[in-house]
């Protein structure tokens, strides 16, 4: 059948290793390794599975600093055919609206896609907004919080998505945007062949002119929201330890429950 699949991805600091400057309440990014956003890994894995099942081509797209090329290169070794990186000063400092505008301009420029996959959110910002917002700019339907792709047909795709109290099976037309939660399968690792053949492919860099973007709508300038303040969450105060022998500890545990009104009797 041959689908054109686009996967949008972000390079993020590994939040597990992020440290806080206790004095200033800011993040110390230095020395923190960068990784492909885990939800984007899931999106890429789903794309690779779709490609295996029905055939097609995968394009990957990212916006970020030049170093974000790493995650695109990794994608090429796994079987993506084309890679684009939006990287220019004008794009920096973008909130979700400006980011989505920029990405949607790029998509309009680089091709027509049947399925456009995003991780549901990036683990640094955790907004879950860019996928749906891009869909709105492109005037395409979006299925949010997709956990699996069940069936791909010529004109439609059947997916499973999460809702607050369970799940739904949804049939969406092609083309559609899908935002992907943690998928069943971990992202595969590249084969030697994959690595070797990726050497022939390059990451194409794009700036505002290449995508016909209005720079007033990109980056910090194009962002209606501003971060006013960053601070670290207050500690919850001190921990009281429940101590003593088992009898004493279990009795005190129950006193705590009673005191909080969580156990009556």
């Amino acid at each position: 059948m041959g689908l054109e699949i686009l996967v949008c991805m972000k390079q993020v600091p590994d939040t597990q290793k992020v440290k806080i400057d206790p004095e200033r309440g800011t993040l110390i990014r230095k020395g923190v390794p960068s990784i492909m956003n885990p939800f984007d890994e899931s999106a890429l894995e789903l794309a690779l599975e779709i490609k295996e099942a029905v055939g097609g081509r995968i394009t990957v797209l990212s916006m970020g600093i030049p170093d974000a090329e790493c995650i695109l290169r990794d994608s090429l070794t796994l079987g993506a055919e084309k890679a684009y990186l939006l990287t220019k000063g004008d794009f920096a400092g973008a909130d979700t609206l400006a980011t989505s505008y920029t990405i949607s301009r790029a998509i309009k420029t680089i091709g027509k896609y049947d399925l456009l996959l995003f991780g549901k959110q990036a683990i640094d910002g955790d907004t879950a907004q860019v996928g749906p917002e891009v869909s709105a700019y492109l005037d395409l339907p979006v299925v949010t919080f997709v956990s699996d792709v069940i069936k791909v047909e010529k004109r439609s795709v059947v997916v499973e998505r999460m809702i607050d109290n369970g799940k739904q099976v949804i049939k969406a037309p092609i083309p559609s945007v899908l935002t992907v939660v943690k998928a069943r399968q971990r992202l595969r690792i590249p084969t030697i062949d994959g690595i070797v053949s990726s050497f022939e492919r390059n990451v194409v860099r794009l700036g505002p002119d290449d995508i016909g973007a209005d720079i007033k709508r990109c980056g910090l300038k194009g962002s209606p929201t501003r971060v006013k303040k960053i601070f670290s969450p207050e500690g919850k105060g001190s921990t009281s330890y429940i101590e003593g022998n088992l009898e004493q500890m279990s009795a005190e545990f129950i006193d705590v429950l009673k005191h909080k009104g969580l156990y009556r009797r």
């Binding site: 992020v18 806080i20 993040l27 683990i123 929201t225 501003r226 971060v227 006013k228 960053i230 969450p233």
Partner: peptide
């Protein structure tokens, strides 16, 4: 919260 809850950010849309 952002960065996995490591920091809090106050945001405005002026």
């Amino acid at each position: 919260p952002a960065f996995g809850g490591n920091i809090l950010a106050t945001i405005e849309c002026a």
